[in-house]
Design a protein around this nucleic acid. Structure first.
Lengths: 140, 140
DNA sequence: CTTGAACCTCAAGTTACTTGAGGTCCTACC
DNA sequence: GGTAGGACCTCAAGTAACTTGAGGTTCAAG
């Protein structure tokens, strides 16, 4: 039976982050202060791993540390509805969509830029790059 | 002829950034040290505005300060081909595409999360949020 | 019992800026 | 010509979310 007792290194590996990141999360309060062995090394259990994965997942969701703290508080209070969580997620979704929109435009522009380089400058790399010159004038 | 003589405030306004950002760009070498008036105030010309716009556009493209410095060097050297610029843009395009991929997954997951909240928890916000529990079972 | 990998703490660095304190300059108005 | 106040100045420190480094301790294997 896995009364595991994970080291910080193992936790990091399974949680998909660095050892430093875990210590950082503890410092800022995203993870509770870890139990210690005699020598001072941190020990973790499965619950810690779940918590860490939750935090990492939220970070993947682009939640800020403070937002994740809020989510954790909602989760731990037990007596509060999921309305808060949903609202946080909805707000985050809007941000993600806006960012997605920007990134798509960015991809288009960069692709365009690279293609211009191929057609306008290659085959004989001249002294001046036309697309680069265009960039300087864009937005006027 | 517009021998303009822009103040830093005007430059900021026209360049779409803050006054502090301009001073910062000067400090890190993205803008050349500005000319000064008798009292020490910075004065700018149209060339500076063009340069600033170029920098801002590159930042919109998610280029780092160092990458922009490289681009500016390419632009100013005049005797180097656009190959470098194209390579930088290509690398950036790859990064942008990877980010786009992640963001799309993120959007899907967040949407899913919000929808779960709507169906599983609303209409009577109970004590525990099922989707939140799915993210990582709390307290267990 | 001795390596050497993994761990510890604390401090400082990273990126691209922003914010703040404390002081100077410029322009417009009377 | 004097003055109010807005724009400007410098320098230092703060921000997010970590990472990196120095210098030292502990643990597991051989």
């Amino acid at each position: 039976m896995p009364a595991a007792g994970l080291t910080i290194g193992t936790l990091a590996e399974r949680g998909g982050c660095s050892v430093s990141t875990i210590r950082y999360y503890e410092e800022v309060g995203l993870l509770p202060p870890a139990d210690r062995r005699a020598g001072g090394h941190r020990v973790y259990g499965e619950a810690d791993l779940r918590r860490l994965k939750f935090v990492r997942r939220c970070r993947d969701f682009d939640f800020s540390i403070d937002e994740i703290k809020a989510l954790v508080a909602v989760m731990e209070s037990g007596d509060r509805s999921c309305t808060e969580a949903r609202d946080l997620a909805t707000a985050r979704l809007a941000v993600v969509r806006a960012r997605l929109f920007e990134l798509r435009a960015l991809e288009r522009d960069l692709k365009q830029f690279v293609e211009s380089c191929e057609t306008a400058c290659l085959g004989g790399p001249g002294p001046s790059c036309a697309p680069l010159g265009d960039l300087a004038r864009a937005g006027d």
